[in-house]
Design a binder for these strands. Structure first.
Lengths: 196, 196
DNA sequence: GCCGAACCGGACCGGGCGGTCAACTTTGTA
DNA sequence: TACAAAGTTGACCGCCCGGTCCGGTTCGGC
């Protein structure tokens, strides 16, 4: 068991994670460790003390965000209207991404075991959200939790091209996609749902 | 006016473009010029003779693909069923992307003037495709050509996570999104369509 | 078949990157 | 307050990348 971090180390860790998120959001995956350190106001060596490699740093950021999403999902699981809840979850996910688009980090940390573990938990939460909505007839019955896990980030991706001009544009595409998920007017799907 | 390329230069140019597309598809934007040259069976210097910078090479690849899409769109503009035509166009776009996902190149070459020009032409083609479908009542009347321009690539993005396991999965999400574009069961959209 | 222009290739350059390390500073505990 | 452990730092390393350059090769008009 590792003892708690020293006060200064804990502070630096927080600064570092925040600065890294900002820097990645601005410059993409190519953001350099040196720039991140400078932004956090710490030395480059300190970065590597906290995270052995750049990949570890990325994984830590992703972990934070996935965790937040799981919490939101679990809260919504306790709400009344299951259809609303699902839509709200998607909205929350999109909002997180809109604030700072770090989707590429998710892809970059795909191999990480910890990230996979937590993402599986997120997947489970989404499964329940969808199952509930489906039973209530709020979404068509041929969509699965895995579908929603994949669809989740699409609105931001679509709106990404006009990000600065219309930062809330993702709402439009979320609505279109959600209409496609409704039972009314649904056409049979040409491809089976993906396995895990 | 530049005279035609010498026979060997023309051949190398073709080899180079093909190899670059493959290499980018496999290794992403970070694919190195040296590797591309090796794959094409030519020297590194030759790459830079054909394209002054890496960005120029990327733009050339993107240009080829956008051109192909414009042609497909213009053909479909002459078909009978406007709704089918739109769906077919989206299918063609997705298929191109599924073969080799080079969406990141599109983003990387966003600044290029030539690319912008051709993309504007593609946009026009899509506008007409959508307008026709809308008049026929095949799609809801609050979606625009710009919407479809943005939505076009979403199915591949969504299916990208399971690319090798289910290469045709994009068809599923294209169908869901297209259901969302239909007039039946459409709910009002919470955000106006983007301008150009 | 000759010859100049076009083309090819790979050694080379400067720069920036991720990551290391050893000297130094801060922390917190006894 | 004394001191060992934990944390910090930035100069430094090796590597690889995009891009240059020039001696050698190939093409094609005459």
């Amino acid at each position: 068991m590792n003892r708690p971090l020293r006060a200064d180390a804990a502070r630096n860790r927080r600064l570092l994670l925040a600065a890294a998120a900002d820097e990645f959001a601005e410059h993409g995956l190519e953001a350099s460790i040196a720039d991140i350190a400078k932004r956090a106001g710490i030395g480059k060596g300190t970065v590597f003390r906290h995270f052995a490699t750049k990949e570890d740093l990325i994984a830590a950021i992703v972990l934070d965000r996935v965790e937040a999403l799981i919490e939101t999902g679990e809260d919504l699981l306790r709400s009344e209207n299951s259809g609303e809840a699902l839509l709200e979850f998607l909205t929350a996910a999109a909002q997180q991404r809109q604030q700072r688009d770090l989707s590429f980090l998710q892809r970059a940390s795909a191999g990480n075991a910890e990230v996979s573990r937590l993402q599986a938990r997120l997947q489970e939460t989404i499964d329940q959200l969808v199952e509930r909505a489906r039973e209530d007839g709020a979404v068509r019955d041929d969509v699965t939790g895995t579908d929603l896990f994949l669809l989740m980030c699409a609105p931001n991706y679509i709106a990404g091209y006009a990000h600065t001009a219309a930062p809330e544009l993702w709402r439009r595409y979320l609505a279109i996609i959600f209409d496609g998920l409704r039972p009314e007017g649904a056409h049979p799907l040409p491809h089976p749902a993906p396995e895990r």
